[in-house]
Design a binder for these strands. Sequence first.
DNA 1: GAGTGGTCTAGACCACTGT
DNA 2: CAGTGGTCTAGACCACTCC
Lengths: 245, 245
Amino acid sequence: MNGDGIVLDGQGPLHLQIRRAIAGPILSGAWAPGRRIPSEHELVARFGVSRMTVNRALASLAGEGLVERRRRAGTVVAARSAERAVFEIWDIAAEIARAGGVHRADLLARAEEPAGAEEAALLKVEPGTAVLRLVLRHHADGVPVQLEERLVDPAMAPAIRTETFAGITPGRWLLERVPWTEAEHRIGAVEAPAAAARHLGLSRGAACLVVERRTWRGERAITHVRLTSPAGAQVLVGRFGPSAG
Amino acid sequence: MNGDGIVLDGQGPLHLQIRRAIAGPILSGAWAPGRRIPSEHELVARFGVSRMTVNRALASLAGEGLVERRRRAGTVVAARSAERAVFEIWDIAAEIARAGGVHRADLLARAEEPAGAEEAALLKVEPGTAVLRLVLRHHADGVPVQLEERLVDPAMAPAIRTETFAGITPGRWLLERVPWTEAEHRIGAVEAPAAAARHLGLSRGAACLVVERRTWRGERAITHVRLTSPAGAQVLVGRFGPSAG
DNA sequence: GAGTGGTCTAGACCACTGT
DNA sequence: CAGTGGTCTAGACCACTCC
């Protein structure tokens, strides 16, 4: 017992199990940057696998910048682990918290209704299928900074029907509960649409950053979300290497 | 001799050499989507390495979506290889060509001058160091779609002094000639700054997408570029999996 | 059935670096 | 010098899928 709570879940290849066991606490913030991760030798002994298998998992995490590895010094959670993962998770609550702000979200609308043509196209379901529509407004230190318009296919996440999103954003709720295989992003600038202008208190035509994201599990879409932020309020930052590993 | 031109360059670890040898022709477009890549067995025989080493290189390319692998069917260049790499290369000429348009660029300004305070900060050089400043306007089918404002540290790429950028954009020129270790992106929306409005023919305050990118080799910056596009003209698209390998 | 990739093992040698 | 990661080998078994 080393008490660090690393356990394998028995799902899929060993190297991915080890990867998940370590990536989870890093992405959730439970392991702060700088925290030391057990050495390859320790993990070999703990899980009873070969060193190559452990190395594969850790090398993959290092390639994405979630951990940093140095000979003799060992493997530690990377200082910029959160920044490097930003293109993937884009959780505004975590972003605001990291910047030292206070996050709050209003649930402006919530309805489960038959999909219209546009909604059906976004979620790739048949028109008329019941879809959950959520609209939230996110605040940083009390100032509105983002409008979230989300569609969810409840068939892909039935438990969402009883979730109130009191202490968690829908994006993180889904990320933690629904396994996904692929995500698709579109990032662009627009002049504030009416809904965004009204909810964010902007003048018509103000510049906004829009991120649309659709997440898939296999051939089926789980959710589609449009995130609209006023110019300057939100900036996407990412860094990466030449994907050499 | 299989005549596909794959050769190792002898630089660094074998798995990275193999990776580069295959990623190069894919990223440059020389190998079209769907093209079959030699099997692991063939590569083992050709390079005289173990299968694990070949597998490591190919698995890494598959993890990024540059190739697709299927048992029995073999490994082929991925259909969406270009789309998946978009966050990394972001070459507007290639984007326009892929969409079926005609790209043209005007070199609006070119000067090598001592860096002012702001330029020195962007390139992380001492104020007064000579830096190359380039301004280009990119057109798709004759319509201005992007203003490129670039700073280059000529010490990192001396050959750039004699390059005219007649048939190549500065971004691609640098990408092909200067090895980099890290890139840093900031993506946001702004109301058109004066220079962008003037060069792109926009009204003041029009919404624009701005991408700033700084590329590093080790501790030294190679280039900083600010790409400004009118709302709607340019959309960043990316897709990826949960980085499971 | 045969070819392909997916995974895993046991071991080896080396390079780096903190103590 | 000892601990750590970086790399590589030779071989194995399995799963899938096209022919």
